[in-house]
Lab assay of single mutants.
Amino acid sequence: LTDEELVTMSVRELNQHLRGLSKEEIIQLKQRRRTLKNRGY
């Protein structure tokens, strides 16, 4: 997933992508998404 996709994707879509990932990967992705959102994309 690109940063842009992460930010513009709805939470529902995101959760579908996260299905099948490990807990660590999910946590990393969610942190990255929060960081991007805070940057004001």
Rank of each mutant, 00 (worst) to 15 (best):
M9D: 02
Q31K: 13
R19Q: 11
L29W: 04
E13N: 04
G20S: 08
L29Q: 03
E13C: 03
S22D: 06
I26E: 04
E13R: 05
M9G: 02
L18E: 01
E5Q: 14
G40K: 12
R33A: 07
V7W: 05
R39N: 15
M9Q: 02
Q28F: 13
M9A: 03
S10H: 05
E24F: 09
K23P: 12
K23Q: 11
Q31T: 10
N38S: 08
V11L: 08
R32M: 03
L1T: 02
V7T: 06
S22E: 06
L6I: 04
N15C: 15
G40Y: 14
L36F: 01
Q16F: 11
G20L: 08
T2V: 02
Q31E: 13
R12T: 12
N15I: 13
H17M: 09
E25M: 12
Y41T: 13
T2Y: 01
G40S: 11
Q28S: 11
D3L: 04
L36C: 01
T35H: 14
H17G: 01
I26F: 04
V7S: 07
T8D: 07
G20K: 09
T35M: 15
S10P: 05
K30A: 05
R34C: 14
R12C: 11
E5T: 05
T8Q: 14
K37R: 11
Q16S: 08
E4N: 07
R34D: 11
R32Q: 02
M9H: 04
E13P: 00
R12Y: 10
L1Y: 04
V11D: 13
N15V: 12
T35E: 15
E25R: 07
L6T: 00
D3S: 02
R33K: 05
K30M: 15
L6E: 02
N38D: 14
T2I: 02
R34F: 04
N38T: 08
S22A: 08
L21T: 02
I26S: 08
E24K: 11
E4S: 08
R32C: 02
V7P: 02
G40I: 15
E13I: 05
L14I: 05
L29D: 01
R33Q: 08
L29P: 00
Q31Y: 07
L21Q: 04
N15L: 13
V11S: 08
L18M: 14
D3N: 04
K37E: 07
Q28Y: 14
N15E: 13
L18N: 02
S10L: 03
V7M: 14
D3T: 01
E13M: 07
K30P: 00
E25P: 00
R33G: 01
L14W: 09
T35Q: 14
K30F: 15
R33S: 03
Y41N: 13
R34P: 01
E5F: 05
R32G: 00
V11I: 12
Q16P: 02
I26M: 08
R19Y: 06
N38A: 08
L29S: 02
